[in-house]
């Protein structure tokens, strides 16, 4: 138990100490809120979609969590390059425990990052229908964070250095984000896009956050929670397996 706690704490300390990372990672969400929120707002309203910013805000929160979570998982590659991974791998602690502690820490960091962006969305005029469901929204944020930290860890376990990093961002993280329901409603889409959005786990996470904050679920609360839990469990399983095979 104290091992899990220490591994979790390590991720948090590293996060709190890297101010550049905290501030730097807020740039993108702000840009999206400004450019899309203000840029597309009028068109969206005319088309009968309602307040675009309130629609977009949960998507941007999800984006911040997605990036931060994948990044936390990928940090294993840094640990490998700077050598600290060796120290963890020779310790008499099961690899699953190490993977778990790290993932919980990374997910906590990503959730905090999501909450900071959540705070920022108010500056842009985000309307939450009721704060009663805030705990539910935070739960969804944490599930998104957990799922993608586990995915990042799984991927990082297969990579030796940072060279594959751009590839992952461009061919995995970006599509996961753009083809989820983060930026546009999932109703009345062309079949292909609809299918992709349906298999993109981020769609369910963002739908959950959006539902909890604005009251409009697309898939439904139960479906969102169920899908996220199952996919997270699968990724943690795969991540643990791949991590247990890591050699130096």
């Amino acid at each position: 138990m104290s091992i899990l706690y220490q591994l979790w704490l390590r991720q948090l300390k590293r996060y709190v100490r890297s101010r550049a990372r905290i501030i730097g990672s807020l740039g993108q969400p702000i840009l999206f809120l400004v450019a899309l929120g203000f840029g597309f707002g009028p068109v969206f309203q005319k088309a009968g979609g309602g307040d675009y910013l309130s629609f977009l805000a949960p998507g941007v929160i999800g984006m911040a969590i997605l990036f931060s979570a994948v990044f936390s998982g990928i940090e294993i590659i840094w640990d490998r390059q700077f050598g600290f991974l060796k120290e963890m791998l020779v310790a008499p602690v099961s690899r699953i425990q190490i993977m778990f502690g790290r993932t919980l820490g990374g997910a906590t960091v990503a959730t905090i990052q999501g909450l900071i962006v959540f705070g920022l969305t108010f500056l842009f005029g985000f309307h939450v229908i009721s704060f009663a469901f805030l705990p539910l929204a935070i739960l969804f944020m944490f599930l998104i964070a957990l799922l993608f930290t586990a995915l990042g860890t799984a991927i990082a376990s297969m990579l030796d250095d940072m060279q594959g990093f751009q590839l992952i961002i461009n061919f995995l993280v970006m599509p996961l984000f753009f083809l989820s329901g983060a930026l546009f409603p999932l109703q009345g889409l062309p079949a292909v896009i609809n299918d992709i959005a349906t298999i993109d786990p981020l769609s369910y996470g963002i739908d959950g956050v959006r539902g909890a904050l604005t009251g409009a679920f697309h898939f439904g609360l139960g479906t969102d929670v169920g899908v996220l839990l199952v996919v997270t469990a699968v990724f943690i399983g795969i991540g643990s397996y791949l991590f247990s095979k890591v050699q130096i």
Binding site: S2, I3, Q6, R10, K13, R14, R17, S18, D79, F82, G83, F84, K86, E87, M88, A91, P92, V93
Partner: peptide, 24 residues
């Protein structure tokens, strides 16, 4: 180890403590 294996973002004490916890 021959090559570096410390966590640079932690303090000396924290590196020691984490090790102590990992080794129970």
């Amino acid at each position: 180890f021959q090559d570096p294996s410390l966590d640079d973002e932690l303090t000396a004490y924290e590196n020691m403590e984490l090790h102590g916890v990992l080794y129970r």
